[in-house]
């Protein structure tokens, strides 16, 4: 064990392994990360400030609000929507979102006859520049195993009941293409601005496990 991992019974500063339980001992993985991070720093393989910058980027700068802006723009701007469906990555980059785990984004349009949903059965592929890091359920064995064999059952558990007349398309992200669902614009939103519309676009609606909120359902 490295000299950074010795105080596992009384560490109050950095290791809120269980939020609200600061006196709990560090868990196995917490000890392991602490030791490994110390080793990598001691060896000069990582820069601690770069670690902080990476965390800050994905915790505060990148997230589903990016994707919501893309969707809202597509709802109000038909020319943008056309570009988005023809070249997702290019149109998304117009708003400044690009890069790692989103080098080639394909946008899938939900319509009254087609419902798209996205999964990665082999790992956890997800369009980081527009949605941020994936939620735990998206990376979990239940979602990854069931979505390709029982998409309608999974959708029902998310409260999405897709009529039998609507085709469900499941997109398994096995390559480096990343998929973003363009949800249907809710009824009764004709008067709303692009900024107001973006508030209706949930993360799940862009994965295909939800619909956009209605103005009444807005939280």
């Amino acid at each position: 064990m490295s000299d950074h991992g010795h105080h596992h019974d009384h560490d109050h500063d950095h290791d809120d392994d269980q939020p609200g339980a600061h006196d709990a001992p560090l868990s196995g993985p917490a000890l392991k990360v602490k030791a490994l991070e110390s080793l990598l720093i001691d060896k000069g393989l990582v820069d601690p400030k770069a670690l902080d910058e990476l965390i800050d980027t994905y915790e505060t700068k990148v997230g589903p609000r990016n994707g919501a802006r893309v969707v809202a723009k597509a709802w109000v701007d038909p020319a943008y929507k056309k570009r988005l469906l023809e070249n997702g990555g290019g149109a998304i980059a117009e708003l400044g979102y690009r890069g790692r785990q989103g080098e080639d984004i394909v946008v899938l349009e939900n319509t009254p006859t087609v419902h798209n949903m996205v999964v990665c059965t082999l790992c956890s592929c997800y369009p980081w520049p527009v949605l941020g890091l994936p939620p735990v359920w998206y990376k979990s064995a239940p979602y990854r195993s069931r979505t390709v064999i029982d998409p309608r059952g999974v959708l029902r558990e998310f409260g999405v009941d897709v009529p039998e007349s609507v085709e469900v398309r499941v997109w398994d992200s096995t390559a480096e293409l990343r998929y973003l669902v363009l949800p249907e614009r809710p009824a009764g939103t004709e008067h709303m601005t692009e900024e107001q519309l973006a508030e209706l676009v949930t993360r799940d609606s862009m994965i295909g496990t939800g619909q956009a909120l209605t103005p009444a359902g807005r939280r």
């Binding site: 990360v33 602490k34 670690l51 990476l54 359920w137």
Partner: peptide, 27 residues
């Protein structure tokens, strides 16, 4: 493999060690 269990208002990371594990792996 169990039910799909979405977590309302899920944080990006659940613990400090997840933050560090993510960052050292990327770096």
């Amino acid at each position: 493999l169990g039910p799909v269990e979405p977590e309302p208002d899920e944080p990006v990371f659940h613990t400090e060690w997840e933050r560090r594990a993510f960052a050292i792996t990327l770096a």
